[in-house]
Design a protein around this nucleic acid. Structure first.
Length: 783
RNA sequence: UGGCCCGUGGUGUAACCGGCAACACACUUGGCUCUGGACCAAGAGAUUCCUGGUUCGAACCCAGGCGGGCCAACCA
């Protein structure tokens, strides 16, 4: 992973390591629930979790999040382990299980109750839902919210010992029923479930919820970076609450003293074109027999991909290609296919297989003769060695689609009277076409071969454009080939209520009577090939009729010829997308909610309303600025404080609105180590020309960090503005001489490069150059 | 209707603390070739969601808007 194009997560981890957070150690975890098979979306997470650990010299745990006994099973856990190993990753130590921590989790819960932060609720499920409120309506406290600690403790103990039925009691955290974040409205921590757990059996009848088990498991395992997907964003507040309100050592420990203290970071999950990714929908495809199990080659599961013939290297490469970010995405299936082809192109030996055979008799080739022709496994550009021989005889089989009675324009395969090359063999010419007397179907081609062209070369140097694959009729092996295509024909099948409607009925086409060259006979299942000119295939573990080998098509070769037909369609699609894009936007201004809030505040506090008016009438500020400045007492005070030392309403307003408001997004104005006076001083320095606007931003940043007098900072740093052309001239010349290519482009009319040169000099001078003077100089020099 | 997250070529991502909008896939054309593959070369494709503002200079900072997503399981 290159330094400059790292994703935001790796940047964050790198900066943590650099800052020595947790002594610079990195511990991640991959936490699947063992209730289904891993799919390519999980592969993205795996590559992230294990990849980050690997790249920063850390470790990654495998932890099964097995807190819901009714859906989980050991056999899924084993399959998940197999898939992770197959991808090429190994976890630190043994597989871990949230269920290993049930006793400790219980202890932490007891402590939480003692700390007054949790209570046992005997409301019904419906009541709890009712009391929780909605996204727009705050919730109301449960009648049991203030149950005495002793009572909750006793009840919780009885929940554990199995005295109560499912659904009668739950343990809840006591947080805030009116929180705008729904996750914080007294979330459930434990529920009663009289069910046999796949690992703990009947030892427990209460089970922790995800939001309780997950942060604690992370903390217990010493996870430093807990990476997950975007839909857990709201859970992070609760995650932090749990970590901060529990003690590493129950009873004696200090609150929130976990070391390392785990932090959750979210990134977007993978969405892929033409498939579904939700576990529920995948399970549905399996249970409804739309596919042949979790490892059906059409499934986006790792088991399916593997059976399809995709190698783990391709999947890891794909994960590299798509990157990691926070924007919702839908990745083009072509990107996956590219990764697969790229991998197989470099590794899969080439052999010949004919899918839909057409008989070819070479009339001038001796009957009964067979010669073994040398055929390399790889083309020279791949660089791998190895070859086998293929038998050539009088009767051959070629691909039916490689012959056309009336060849269309641009077709350069076989046609009556035309010559093509049989790959690795001879040039043949088609002389005659034999048809079925009743159906008129072409059943055989009668050809002649040129004995001088053995191995495919042309001694006379004639150029033959077409080369087709073939097998010997006699020696080739019958085999079954399964052609897989995308499962859905809609790019986003999940968009509509019923994704079944978009199922592609021809996602599997079975070719029962294909013929493959004999060299592959003894190869093991799982062997990858390129069937020349057709695509990449893998030998399946199934066998077909009469013990025939079965081959799965992994992916087709790129085929511009075949694509010609679809081009018109494709073009229309793109046009439609463009039109849609042009249609949206340009919406009229709606209501200004921030403005509304400030107006309401001013209505309640007349002194702010007065200031608002005064800022406009007396100070001549535009309404928008006046509104912002008078929407908060502290901001208004700071503004006026600045005016006392520097009476430039417009300048000061700009600085407060544009720079200060940014800082106020995630901190309180009171916590700033400076006040209005400093802002006034800073603006004064800019306006009297002492420092450039650029420098002022640096000074401001410093002010935010540590406070101080701007005049002092400028003096100490020696960052006064350079306005003397004589002082700048040499630097400008240096910048121009140092970038002759850009200078030439500028002179050629690329005027946007002016900023580039200004930037160069700014960098050189630490932002001290007077931009106007500088710009004039650059323009002069570049003529 | 509340809170939070996110908007950059067709797609996925980059772009240091404001200074040449970059890379990969896909696409087009040409070259090479015993695979209509691979490879090589060239090319096209972006009003950085919109409107204002700040700045010599904005994808990036400020304000507002628009659009998309997530959250109201005793699932994870």
């Amino acid at each position: 992973m290159s330094e400059e194009s790292r994703d935001f997560i790796r940047k964050m981890v790198a900066s943590d390591v650099l800052a020595g957070v947790n002594g610079g150690s990195v511990v991640t975890r991959f936490p699947p629930e063992p209730n289904g098979f891993l799919h390519i979306g999980h592969a993205k997470a795996i590559c992230l979790d294990f990849g980050v650990a690997e790249e920063f010299g850390g470790t990654c745990n495998l932890r099964f999040d097995d807190t819901n006994p009714t859906t989980e099973d050991e056999r899924y856990a084993r399959a998940i382990e197999e898939d992770i190993r197959w991808l090429g990753f190994d976890w630190n130590g043994p597989s871990r299980y949230a269920s290993d921590y049930f006793e400790r989790l219980y202890g932490h819960a007891v402590q939480l109750i003692k700390d007054g932060l949790a209570y046992v609720d005997s409301s019904s499920e419906a009541e709890i839902r009712e009391y929780r409120g909605t996204v727009t309506k705050p919730g109301r406290p449960s009648p049991h919210r203030d149950r005495p600690v002793e009572e909750s403790l006793a009840l919780f103990g009885r929940m554990r010992s199995g005295e109560f039925e499912d659904g009668t009691y739950v343990l809840r955290a006591r947080i805030d029923m009116a929180a705008p974040n729904m996750k914080m409205r007294d979330p459930l921590l434990y529920r009663i479930r009289h069910a046999t757990h796949h690992r703990t059996g009947d030892e427990w009848c209460i089970y922790p919820m995800y939001d309780w088990a997950h942060p604690l498991s992370d903390a217990i395992e010493g996870i430093t970076h807990s990476l997950c997907t975007l839909e857990f964003l709201d859970n992070r507040t609760l995650y932090d609450w749990v970590v901060d309100n529990t003690r590493p050592h129950v009873e004696s420990g200090e609150l929130g003293a976990w070391q390392p203290r785990p932090h959750q970071t979210e990134s977007a999950r993978l969405n892929l074109d033409y498939t579904v990714m939700s576990k529920r929908k995948l399970a549905e495809l399996v249970s409804e027999d739309r596919v042949d199990g979790w490892d059906d080659p059409r499934m986006p599961t790792l088991a399916g991909l593997r059976r399809r013939g995709v190698r783990p290297e391709a999947i890891r490469r794909f994960c590299d290609l798509i990157g990691v970010a926070k924007a919702d995405n839908r990745v083009d299936i072509g990107t996956l296919e590219h990764a697969i082809r790229d991998d197989l192109n470099r590794t899969a030996p080439r052999v010949m297989c004919v899918l839909r055979p057409l008989r070819v008799e070479i009339e001038n080739y001796p009957e009964g003769k067979t010669e073994e022709l040398e055929a390399p496994y790889f083309p020279s550009d791949v660089g791998l060695q190895g070859s086998r021989t293929v038998p050539f005889s009088r009767v051959l089989l070629i691909e039916r689609t490689d012959f056309e009675q009336d060849p269309p324009k641009g077709f350069y395969r076989l046609a009556p009277g035309r010559e093509v090359r049989l790959r690795y063999a001879y040039l043949i010419t088609c002389n005659d076409v034999v048809r079925d007397s009743e159906t008129g179907e072409v059943v055989e081609l009668r050809c002649t071969y040129d004995p001088e062209t053995r191995g495919g070369s042309t001694p006379d140097g004639r150029n033959v454009r077409g080369t087709i694959h073939w097998v010997s009729c006699e020696e080739s092996l019958p085999c079954e080939v399964r052609l897989y295509d995308r499962l859905f024909f809609e790019p986003n099948p999940e968009e509509d209520a019923d994704f079944h409607e978009h199922l592609n009925p021809t996602s599997l086409v079975i070719v029962p009577e294909a013929r493959v060259e004999p060299s592959v006979a003894e190869d093991a299942p799982g062997t990858h090939y390129q069937f020349e000119r057709l695509g990449y295939f893998v030998r399946d573990s199934d066998t077909g009729d009469e013990g025939r080998p079965v081959y799965n098509r992994t992916v087709e070769l790129k085929d511009p010829w075949a694509r010609r037909l679809q081009d018109d369609l494709r073009l229309t699609e793109q046009l439609i997308v463009k039109v849609e894009k042009a249609d949206r936007e340009e919406a009229p201004a709606g209501e200004d909610t921030g403005r509304q809030a400030r107006d309401e505040l001013r209505a309640r506090r007349p002194e702010l309303a007065t200031r608002f008016e005064r800022y406009m009438s007396e100070l001549g500020l535009p309404e928008e600025d006046a509104d912002l400045l008078s929407g908060d007492v502290a901001v208004a005070d700071l503004f006026e404080g600045a005016l006392v030392v520097h009476d430039s309403p417009r300048g000061v307003a700009n600085w407060i609105v544009n720079e200060l408001l940014r800082e106020l997004k995630d901190r309180e104005i009171e916590s700033l180590p400076f006040g209005g006076e400093e802002i006034g001083r800073l603006v004064a320095l800019v306006e009297d020309g002492t420092i450039s606007g650029r420098t002022a931003k640096d000074v401001f940043a410093r002010l935010v960090r540590e406070g101080g007098d701007p005049r002092e900072i400028v003096r100490a740093e020696g960052v006064e503005q350079i306005s003397d052309p004589a002082a700048l001239r040499a630097i400008v010349e240096g910048a121009i001489d140092g970038h002759p290519e850009q200078a030439a482009r500028y002179r050629a009319g690329q005027s946007g490069l002016l900023g580039f040169f200004v930037g160069q000099v700014m960098r050189e001078t630490g932002g001290r150059a007077n931009p106007e003077v500088l710009q004039r100089l650059v323009r002069e020099k570049l003529g």
